[in-house]
Amino acid sequence: MLNIKSINQQLNNFHELVENKDLVKQIKQPKGLKTGVDLGTSSIVLVVLDESNRPLFGAYEYAKVVRDGIIVDYLNSVRIVRKLKEEAEAKLGVSLTTASGAIPPGTGENSEKVVANVLGDAGFDASIIIDEPTAAARFLNMTEGSVIDIGGGTTGISNFEKGQSVAIFDEPTGGYHMSLVVSGAFSVPIDEAELLKRNRAKEVEVFGAVRPVVEKMATIAARYVVASEQAPVVVVGGATNFKEFVHTFEKIMKRPVIRPQYPEFVTPIGIAMFDQE
């Protein structure tokens, strides 16, 4: 059963931890720590959990190191992950040795190796590399239904039945494609388009421009989601942070759609939960 109230409380707590590093406490007994690294198209997120999956540390840095789920700037990826690792270690007072990572489904074994190499060169032992919507589902504790992970370059869908993943799909439409549309609609460079997407004062105008992209994402999701009408469908990812996003999805999919608060943190926390298993 999806407990959205509990999920939102956890995400709110994690958001406070990310925004206020004074809340981070030194660890006396570091046994069982779990670390996850989410190499996203617009940002890199690092999460540290305790052995009971309670967040201890979270941080992110905006970056342009990934395109359509593929790492295109290896050296900067390593530099940023190492920087976030050192920040976490300094705040927590421990050494972080292992970390899990993730890739969009369908990007292949080579992508797994590249992400593992980034983690390795940043000072981690890569414990496991999983697909992003499955990571999101772990945090959400999904046993029935579907998770739609809107990444920077792709829309990933995982379907679950009786606690098991039964199908995983991925299509090349994501937040970066929204930025391309914004860039063209407002005649601004792609970097400025990324900032416009996050500008709440411009949200109505921006969403009006990207609505066709969101409708395409919803059409993709409707094609692959196989859950019954009673099973939940959850959208996650930073690209979903528009007020009209869920309503647009529901119109296309013709069924209720749930978006947690701070959906950009769902997948990173789920990634960390897989570490050291």
Rank of each mutant, 00 (worst) to 15 (best):
S187N: 15
A90Y: 06
E61C: 06
L23E: 02
A102L: 00
M142G: 07
E250T: 03
G175H: 13
M217Y: 08
N141D: 15
T41H: 03
R198H: 06
Y62R: 14
V72E: 10
A227I: 05
E51V: 14
E16M: 04
S158I: 11
E19Y: 09
A63M: 10
K25Y: 06
Q9W: 01
S77L: 04
N53S: 15
G153A: 10
K162A: 15
V214N: 02
S100H: 00
K85W: 00
H15G: 00
A137S: 15
G151K: 14
L140S: 07
N199W: 02
G69F: 03
A185S: 12
G106C: 12
N110M: 10
G145M: 07
V18A: 08
A135N: 08
A193C: 10
K162L: 13
I44R: 04
N141W: 04
F14N: 01
K113Q: 15
N141V: 12
F124H: 14
G174W: 09
F207N: 10
D191R: 10
N117I: 00
G58N: 05
D131C: 05
R200M: 05
A222H: 03
K28E: 09
L196G: 02
G237M: 13
E144P: 08
T35P: 05
N76M: 01
K243E: 13
L84C: 05
N110Y: 12
G108D: 05
I7R: 05
T267N: 12
A90D: 09
F207I: 04
Q261N: 13
G93C: 07
G36M: 14
G237P: 12
N8R: 10
T240D: 12
L195G: 05
A59S: 15
F124N: 08
R198T: 03
I71D: 00
V94A: 02
A222I: 00
T97V: 15
V118I: 15
E132A: 11
L84D: 03
V24G: 11
G175Y: 05
E161Q: 15
Y176T: 10
P104R: 11
D22N: 14
V233S: 09
N3I: 03
K216C: 07
T267G: 05
G175V: 09
D149N: 11
L196S: 07
I148Y: 12
V266I: 12
G152S: 02
E264C: 07
A167V: 03
R54M: 11
M273E: 08
E112Y: 05
I129P: 09
S127G: 14
Y224I: 02
G108V: 07
T240V: 08
R138W: 09
I220R: 11
E203Y: 04
V48F: 09
G69L: 01
T240K: 13
Q230F: 11
G208I: 04
P189K: 13
L46M: 15
E51C: 08
R259W: 07
V266E: 03
H247Q: 06
F186W: 12
S158E: 04
S165M: 14
Y176S: 04
Y60N: 13
V210H: 07
R259G: 06
S228Q: 13
R200T: 06
S43E: 14
A137C: 03
A116M: 13
F245M: 02
A90N: 11
Q26A: 15
G270I: 01
G270E: 02
G69T: 02
I80R: 04
V166D: 04
A102R: 01
E161V: 14
I157K: 12
V226P: 01
R211M: 11
G152W: 03
